[in-house]
Design a binder for these strands. Structure first.
Lengths: 321, 321
DNA sequence: TTGTACGCGTTATCAG
DNA sequence: CTGATAACGCGTACAA
């Protein structure tokens, strides 16, 4: 910057003013500064700028698992929305580990992100408290924690899950297996609670960890137990369950019905296509980003609940109804 | 930091020394400082630290498309490797747009990442030159650019593609359709060049853009032209092609054979399972991170070429051979 | 071993 | 409209 100033025959202050679009500088000096910048290939140091302004124009996003397409979609939506407001997003991948999540959150805070978007790995509120204590704007995404005091953006699957339960019961299923998420996550508990509630308690539940492998194992256990329908509460566990079904040579929906929470582009390719509960991922990501930006702006955004939708495709025997 | 110093009855210099694990401070003063840090919940400002040390312990990764599982896997591998070396990764999503790619690269440079990993959207070398001119360590990943002078890490699909070509010809296919990537990307060109070369020129090529929609359109065109086999040079275009095949009610491999570049966890679930050319994504990501760290360390890492492997599953009529 | 003082690259205040 | 100058939070030579 000093070089640029010298080159243009002005002070660094003036260079700064040109850079920040202040009204002050004469068109003529502005021209000279711009020319010098161009010639020297000068680029301002964002670190120094942030140190001075205490604003990084950056949002932190800590997600549970980058390899889970559901979160990848959310990440992309967050990024789109943020960019359209002049913000950058730094993504941290917690890999469904509370420890790694905490590490990332602290790293992002140390780098002074202007706000934080968090998909909590567990419903333990301690990390959330830590962030709040630091006074950093925080929004929870997809999952919540016990006694959360910050805005939460998530999908509401109640209606869809209830409809699905009715559908399965109506199709004559009396032994239904639920492949649920971890009991210490809000989505892991709520989805299976709502579903089994609608079922009237006639379900068998196995908890997985939102990963493919756990879906296979849970499916194996439930099939051995004689269920005639399987509901996977996450796309990765659904993938695992489908693999187990295929490995056993079972036919869908004749031998076993299946539905999956989260839609994926390849579900319609299977035979029969898979019935799913689709979450509005893009809207969730965008809404979360907007809420966080509002919070940063000093406003008090409300919680957001977007509803998930049941998409019937045939894997629950819909065609036969 | 001043607060901590006061609280512990020392100078900020001593606090700094404790923070950075210098040998100097007495165990006793160290103890006091640590206590003060704990009590005040002090966290060092990474911005200020980086400004002073000119090192951010951060790697930039600009990828073509976060929603493409291939890149998501790479991103995760890069992150794992980087973290194990004490580095953090900032991911930028270029969305297959050269413009957005350039924006992200500049943003990352402005934030003074210690090095940059780039999956170039096109083979135009100008952006790469710009980075190199800035003296920032740079490694190209998956794709290269014309006249690249920096280390490149990528998969070599020649052997697998040649084997696939032989297989298809051996199975009696004489009209083979290739769904290639954009001609202005190295992977878009090379894969179809190698494949059609091995075929002896008897292929019809349609270029897509590494996205699902373009895969459907390309497949439609090629099927209309009467091909009996389809090879998609990327998993997303493969997804699109499979959708088009399903929509037309064609049977694989009887009516049409298909193979896809990139493996995906759901390919084995289809009936028949899809034959693929699998890239070593994890190793690519890790190798790229290692190369970049070596470069940052002042070494001169060589290019890395990992070989992709043909995985026969049945969608090219292997069972009938 | 510890403290003082300077500088990293910016922005903002205050004179002029 | 422009130019000194202080300050952002930290690391480090230098002196004590």
């Amino acid at each position: 910057m000093k070089d640029v100033a010298q080159h243009a025959g002005v002070s660094t202050a003036t260079v700064s003013r040109v850079l920040n679009g202040h009204a002050a500088p004469t068109p003529e000096t502005r021209e000279r500064v711009l020319a010098a910048i161009e010639e020297l290939g000068y680029r301002p140091n964002a670190l120094a700028r942030s140190l001075r302004t205490t604003s990084t124009q950056t949002l932190g996003l800590v997600i549970s698992d980058l390899l889970n397409p559901f979160f990848a979609e959310i990440a992309r939506a967050v990024e789109d929305e943020a960019r359209s407001h002049g913000y950058c997003v730094v993504i941290g991948n917690a890999d469904e580990s509370a420890e790694q999540e905490a590490t990332y959150v602290r790293t992002l805070l140390d780098r002074r992100v202007d706000g934080l978007l968090l998909c909590p790995a567990t419903d333990d509120p301690s990390l959330v408290r830590e962030v709040s204590a630091g006074g950093v704007p925080l929004v929870l995404l997809d999952r919540t924690v016990r006694g959360a005091t910050c805005p939460v953006v998530r999908a509401d699957g109640s209606e869809a899950l209830t409809a699905l339960a009715r559908r399965l019961v109506g199709a004559g299923h009396s032994r239904i297996g639920v492949i649920a998420g971890p009991p210490d996550t809000s989505t892991g508990r709520e989805r299976s609670d709502v579903f089994t509630g609608a079922l009237g308690g006639a379900a068998q539940i196995v908890h997985g960890d939102f990963r493919q492998e756990s879906g296979s194992q849970a499916a194996a256990k439930l099939i051995d137990d004689g269920v005639t329908a399987l509901v996977a509460m996450d796309n990765l566990m659904g993938l695992g369950a489908l693999g187990e079904i295929k490995a056993r040579g079972l036919r869908i929906p004749h031998d076993i019905a299946i539905a999956v929470f989260d839609d994926q582009p390849w579900f319609p390719l299977l035979d029969p296509p898979i019935t799913v509960i689709a979450q509005p991922t893009v809207e969730m990501g965008r809404a979360a980003a907007r809420s966080l930006l509002a919070l940063i702006d000093g406003q008090q955004p409300d919680d957001v609940r977007l509803s998930a939708k049941l998409v019937l495709r045939g894997s629950c025997g819909e065609a036969e109804l």
